[in-house]
């Protein structure tokens, strides 16, 4: 039963990743659609990170007791100053674990 679950999950997840890069799929992206999709990366990544930063135990934490928020603000400043992804990730993690 566990193997069946694993295999069916694999099929569903692979399908979701593959179907739209299959050229035989009769789908032509219009210029408008391409523009719409150009917003997808920042929008999706933000949608993944926002609840991590602003919510803990399903409560909104918009104050300085929230080490996630402090770390996130620090990360925004760092990336603006340095433009270095790795440095920003590492330094803001260090700060986070110091205040957490």
């Amino acid at each position: 039963m566990i193997w069946l679950t694993i295999i069916l999950m694999t099929v569903i997840i692979f399908f979701s990743r593959y179907i739209f890069i299959e050229p035989k799929l009769p789908l032509r992206l219009s210029a408008g659609m391409v523009k719409f999709l150009s917003y997808s990366a920042p929008a999706v990544l933000t949608a993944i990170l926002a609840p991590i930063v602003f919510l803990q135990d399903n409560t909104l934490h918009l104050n300085l007791d929230n080490s996630y928020l402090i770390g996130a603000v620090f990360a925004v400043l760092l990336i603006l100053l340095t433009r270095n992804t790795l440095l920003t990730a590492v330094l803001s993690m260090l700060l986070f674990f110091l205040v957490h």
Binding site: A41, L45, T46, I48, L49, I52, V53, S67, Y68, G71, A72, A75, V76, L78, I79, T85, T88, A89, S92, M93, F96, H100
Partner: peptide, 10 residues
Amino acid sequence: FAIAATFIAL
């Protein structure tokens, strides 16, 4: 937080 920080940097 590691995920959040990296995504912010991107």
